[in-house]
């Protein structure tokens, strides 16, 4: 199913319930909510994040794409949880691990991304940004917009609208990857 490029949810400067930066947002700086998946360090623009909650029970959806971890009851609203490991083609987490839900706003309502560990909200200089190199190939290329060259590590920025757009018929393909 061709997914139209989604309109980003309107910028909402209500920060999530986590460590806030003391400085005001500046023109050339942007805040990112960071988290770890496997050994990689990812970031999502803070204004896209609705909230971060610890592991919740989910109801699995048989026949759904493998990326879909299940459905979660978020205060009466039913939210789909997606496994970022699965989406990024990484090996599944240990059975006893308790992933964290990063609930992001999308044009189709909130969607939760399961990550291994939540990090700080960091403010980074836009000049440190560099798009993904050509060597990043395959279907994962469109999921990552680029990286901020932080000291000692790279902060990969997710293209959330691409991450959450999964059509049901992709299921077999993704299952094979996993």
């Amino acid at each position: 199913m061709p997914e139209p490029s989604r309109v980003k949810s309107p910028p909402n400067h209500e920060l999530p319930q986590m460590q806030k930066s003391k400085e005001q947002l500046m023109a050339d700086k942007e805040s990112y909510c960071t988290f770890r998946v496997d050994e990689l360090y990812f970031g999502v623009e803070v204004c896209q994040v609705q909230e971060v909650i610890r592991y919740q029970h989910t109801t699995r959806v048989p026949l759904a794409p493998a990326v879909v971890q299940g459905l979660m009851n978020l205060r009466g609203q039913i939210v789909t949880t997606l496994s970022l490991r699965e989406r990024l083609g990484m090996s599944p987490a240990d059975a006893d691990s308790r992933p964290i839900n990063v609930v992001i706003r999308t044009s189709n309502g909130p969607v939760s991304l399961l990550v291994d560990e939540i990090g700080d909200v960091v403010e980074v200089d836009q000049e440190l940004f560099e798009p993904a190199p050509e060597t990043l190939q395959g279907e994962h290329r469109e999921l990552i917009r680029g990286a901020f060259k932080l000291e000692g590590r790279l902060l990969l920025i997710l293209n959330t609208s691409k991450v959450v757009s999964i059509a049901a018929h992709e299921s077999c393909q993704i299952r094979n990857v996993g």
Binding site: T58, T59, V61, L63, L71, I166, A168
Partner: peptide
């Protein structure tokens, strides 16, 4: 949700008495 559009086996979801989704 929109992730399940291709699935004809489900008509929707509901929240059960204990808060789980079915």
């Amino acid at each position: 949700g929109s992730h399940f559009k291709g699935l004809s086996t489900y008509a929707g979801t509901t929240i059960m008495g204990d808060g789980t989704v079915s």
